[in-house]
Design a protein around this nucleic acid. Sequence first.
DNA 1: GGTTTTTGTTAGCGTCGCCTAACTGTATCG
DNA 2: CGATACAGTTAGGCGACGCTAACAAAAACC
Lengths: 158, 158
Amino acid sequence: MEAQNTLTGLSETMQMYLKTVYEIQSRKGAARVTDIAGALDVKKASVTSALRTLSAGGYVNYAPYDVVTVTDSGRQIAEDLHRRYAVLHDFFVNVLGIDPETADADSCNLEHHLSETLYERLIGFIEYYQSCATSKFRWDPAIGGFCTDPDTEKLEAE
Amino acid sequence: MEAQNTLTGLSETMQMYLKTVYEIQSRKGAARVTDIAGALDVKKASVTSALRTLSAGGYVNYAPYDVVTVTDSGRQIAEDLHRRYAVLHDFFVNVLGIDPETADADSCNLEHHLSETLYERLIGFIEYYQSCATSKFRWDPAIGGFCTDPDTEKLEAE
DNA sequence: GGTTTTTGTTAGCGTCGCCTAACTGTATCG
DNA sequence: CGATACAGTTAGGCGACGCTAACAAAAACC
């Protein structure tokens, strides 16, 4: 019933498990069931069954009672998800001026649903935005609106 | 198991059903099971059960073998979804220059997952973008990148 | 090294949302 | 009005994911 994303036949749920394994592995070499359960706020039994699914698809290296790592193909997907996340987060924080926690939650929710086109276009937009000195405008919390060049704006605010 | 959105305890799936009823109703007064099934590309039996759920929650007026309309509370949610959709679509098409069909698909997928903050910030951004004559930059298909002021850009392109 | 604590698994169940197949209700048309 | 078509419902099944409870393995501690 779950819709699946561009690059993968993985459900959004499985994508989350995979990304979580990847992140924990990046931090500490390998993931344990308990870590994953904690990160995703699910019970350990749920993790076990998810790992079996991911393992069957060749996305993680998993054997009962052993630690978990991502396979090459799993890593590719996880990194792709991570890139999507990063692009969204970057956009939300640095262009829209959203606080990092909210941006994190939103990015996490949205990363699974971007078309290739939208993804690429967002990257282009951010690149342009960051390289373009003249038209920097961003959210100013003091004003509660967007304004051009927050630095000059601050001066005008006095 | 489905995550639910800000304003409603409705699953994403139920949100889609509700929005569909609303849209059909807007177009032709009321929705029939067949219309809804066609619009969402599901079987009629699935529609019946979804309608029972929505009806139980007080979101649609539904009686077996009769046409369907949204209730007041259903309308509020549907309109809210529609606004989110519209904001996203607007942004995708008019700022990012994405083609309307892709933008439609993306908006449809994303509309259920926006935080209040992100939603409002996007509105603010678009408003600013549209009211701000100086810093208009958008995707130019001819170039394959973003550029400032597409009209002057076109002249330079010759 | 045996006991206790922690970690992980299994089995079984509930919910959601989809499906098919078979049936009922409604409407249309001679 | 009866036959036929179409619309809608019911019943039952399935897959994905979550949970609890009970058990097994591993690790840690005296």
